[in-house]
């Protein structure tokens, strides 16, 4: 009797979980992910090895942090193309500060600030200058990539002889799980809580839904958007720090194309590019899906060129399914 109750309690808990997933609209992608993981582990048992899984989540972490910032931007109905260039600028500036003997902690804090300032500049142009986000961030993408190449004189910046060691950030493990994964999960959880349970998060959704309605409801649209772009720049810088720590070098070309990956992760995870719908849990699933597929294709030895084709197809397919699903409602 007691047992039956426990079972039913467990069942109702499961049902609640099921409902909450359905409510979150991640149901479809979760199934796709499970099916792919299942297929992968059948055709290639290597896939579910612990070391491989660790490898996958490490991959997710670095780009995933950028994608979290991108999700915020997309939710307001904007776009941030400059995140990849931000990674580059931060990578070379921090690396060069290491070379010159700046206190590594201070250098990294400055690196984060540089990212935030780039985001702040985007926000300035978009809110005060009323420049369309696509154009504004296209401009900063181009300019800051140029800046990264200029200050690094076009070549990778190594700090091998400076005595600085920040390997722990990008290469270290805690309980056999890579440090970047903890950072990513921390960012993700905070982002989720901010989006769902703070006034700022609500404002982000409201602006993406209708700027006019948001303003008339007393939301400070300019301040919110500005903060969102600043956050996006900051997270790009954070991702950059992990990246240079992992590679032990700051490349001016670091993060090239990262903006597109971040957009892809968000969109596959159900965040609408027109704003107002989506969330970072979806982004996690989107990032996981992309990484799992990339990893699988790698293991079974598919050409990286073909991998790109597959990735492109997945992006289109994901959005297509999403639109279909919405229409059928």
């Amino acid at each position: 009797m007691e047992n039956a109750q426990a079972v039913s309690a467990k069942y109702s808990k499961l049902k609640g979980l099921k409902e909450s997933f359905a409510k979150l609209k991640y149901y479809g992608i979760l199934w796709v992910l499970l099916v792919i993981v299942l297929i992968a582990s059948i055709i290639q048992p290597e896939f579910i090895k612990f070391s491989n899984i660790v490898n996958i989540i490490r991959q997710i972490a670095i780009n995933g942090i950028i994608a979290v910032g991108m999700t915020f931007v997309l939710l307001t109905g904007g776009i941030d193309l400059s995140v990849g260039a931000t990674v580059g600028v931060v990578a070379v500036s921090v690396a060069m500060m290491f070379q010159r003997g700046v206190n590594p902690v201070l250098a990294m804090i400055i690196g984060l600030l540089i990212g935030a300032v780039i985001g702040f500049i985007n926000g300035l142009g978009i809110t005060k200058g009323k420049i369309v986000p696509f154009i504004m961030t296209l401009g900063t993408l181009t300019a800051f990539r140029g800046l990264a190449l200029y200050i690094a004189n076009g070549s990778p910046q190594s700090w091998r002889n400076s005595g600085v060691n920040i390997k722990f950030l990008g290469q270290g493990d805690i309980l056999a799980i890579p440090v970047p994964v903890y950072i990513f999960l921390g960012v993700l959880i905070m982002a989720h809580i901010i989006l769902k349970f703070t006034t700022f998060g609500r404002s982000v959704y409201a602006i993406g839904d209708s700027r006019e309605a948001a303003r008339l409801s007393g939301i400070n649209v300019i301040k919110t958007e500005w903060m969102v772009y600043t956050l996006s720049g900051f997270l790009a810088a954070l991702s950059s720090l992990i990246l240079i720590s992992r590679l032990s070098v700051g490349e001016p070309t670091a993060g090239e194309g990262a903006e597109l990956d971040a957009i892809a992760m968000s969109v596959i995870g159900g965040t609408s590019v027109s704003g107002g719908v989506g969330g970072v849990i979806g982004t996690l699933l989107g990032a996981t899906l992309l990484s799992v597929i990339a990893n699988l294709l790698n293991i079974i030895g598919i050409s990286p060129f073909i991998q790109r084709i597959v990735k492109g197809a997945i992006i289109i397919l994901a959005v297509l399914l999403d639109t279909k699903q919405k229409k059928s409602k």
Binding site: Y205, S210, E212, A213, G276
Partner: peptide, 9 residues
Amino acid sequence: KTQGLLLKQ
């Protein structure tokens, strides 16, 4: 619809 409501919420 455009000024009063957040239609997606």
